[in-house]
Amino acid sequence: MKFGLQLGYWGAGPIENAAELVAAAEEAGFDAVFTAESWGSDVYTPLAWWGAATRRITLGTAVAQLSARPPTALAMAALTLDHLSAGRHIIGLGVSGPQVVEGWYGQPFAQPLARTREYVRLVRDVLARESPVTSPGPHYPLPYPAGAPGSTGLGRPLKPITHPLRADIPIWLGAEGPKNVAQTAEIADGWLAIFYSLRLADRYEEWLAEGFARPAARRSRDDFEVAATVQVVITGDIATAVDRYRPSTALYVGAMGAEEKNFHADLYRRMGYAEAVDEIGALFREGRKAEAIAAVPDEMVRETMIAGPPDEVRAQIKQWEAAGVTMLMVTARDVATIRRLATLV
């Protein structure tokens, strides 16, 4: 089992002690540090800024949103960071949701699986640098087709001027549904599992196995990474820990997605919390945020949390490892917690 530090995306301002946290994670033996983006801070600038002070720790995006950049632009950022970090980059990608994709980026959300497959293929083509990059589309046609709206017809196939340090920079995908997880196993090098649940571990393995069984699968289960976002809390007061993370669970289930399409809500329904999910979502839509948070059952928060005294936490980590998780992505926000977590594995 490995630890990754998930710095996430910023709220109203930067994470003030982020540089200190990254330094502590590297010193403590954490394997990786990750940044994220929503509709505020971007994913690459903080990663490069904070990562510049490190020498060993892997630098990952979890996740870079597909609609934020064309695949060639993502590949440019990735090959640049990989050079600057001497080959320590992980590309983590995700489709986000229709509210962000269409509301913030002004892009269509339709066919997220097909878009992901095409996007990943183009990123790999850029990094391979074997020939000028072309694609028939339909989502990312290269060059832009002559005769298409606004086209001059003058586009020509190109390959990167800069030679990538690695043609095989790992690509990990954020995925929640069965089809998306299966495709992740087929085309990616790792799975970024948000809200991983031991209750669903057998189903996850079935979805992954479907992808590994496909003829074009890149990897097998033996060399595939499963990085699970999880709160790891060393405490004798589990009730207080649950209360601390209850608002986050409520937010993702009830407000981070449309009523008609919320992938986080769908995942918790698979865990068996359909009734609570419906109530939380209804309360958020009515503007009753405090009541929505109060409606989250304790066990729903505990579902995706590792908490307890040190020996119990170690035992729970072993359970997650036995279930197939290879990295725990934690959101520690103080140096003491990072150092303490490092003693658990």
Rank of each mutant, 00 (worst) to 15 (best):
A12M: 10
W104D: 00
Q65F: 04
G97I: 04
V100R: 02
P112F: 11
G11K: 06
P98W: 00
P70V: 05
V43P: 02
A75I: 02
Q99G: 04
V100W: 03
A53T: 04
I57N: 01
V100P: 05
R56Y: 04
L79D: 01
Y9A: 14
W49M: 13
V33G: 07
S38R: 10
A52S: 14
V63N: 04
E16H: 10
V33H: 07
G106D: 12
Q107F: 07
Q99K: 10
H83T: 02
T116K: 04
P46D: 03
E27V: 05
S85W: 02
G13W: 05
E37V: 10
T54S: 14
E118D: 09
A62F: 08
L59F: 07
W104R: 14
G106L: 08
E16V: 13
G87S: 10
Y44V: 13
A28K: 13
L113M: 09
E37N: 10
S41F: 07
F109E: 12
E27T: 12
Q65D: 06
T116P: 02
G92S: 09
R69N: 14
Y9P: 00
L84H: 00
L79G: 00
L21E: 03
V95R: 10
V63T: 11
G13F: 04
V43I: 12
V33M: 14
R55M: 00
T58L: 08
A48D: 08
V100I: 15
L7E: 10
Q107K: 10
A86T: 05
A53Q: 15
L84Q: 03
A77V: 00
T72A: 04
Q107H: 09
G13Q: 15
A19C: 01
A75L: 02
V33W: 04
A24R: 11
G40W: 08
S67K: 01
L84E: 08
T61C: 10
L7W: 06
V43F: 03
V22L: 05
L84M: 15
V101C: 06
A110T: 12
N17Q: 12
P98M: 04
W104A: 07
W49G: 03
W10V: 02
W104T: 05
V43W: 00
W10Q: 12
V43C: 12
L59I: 07
V95L: 03
V100L: 14
V63S: 07
W50N: 13
V95A: 14
L66N: 07
A78V: 15
A12R: 15
G94A: 09
L7D: 07
G13S: 14
T72Q: 07
Y9T: 13
G103S: 06
A23S: 11
A52K: 08
L81Y: 15
A19G: 15
A114F: 02
P46Y: 06
A12K: 14
L21N: 06
N17S: 12
Y44R: 06
V22I: 14
S38D: 04
G103C: 10
L74G: 02
L74D: 03
L93E: 01
V100A: 08
A68M: 10
A18T: 08
A64R: 01
R88S: 09
V120A: 07
R115S: 08
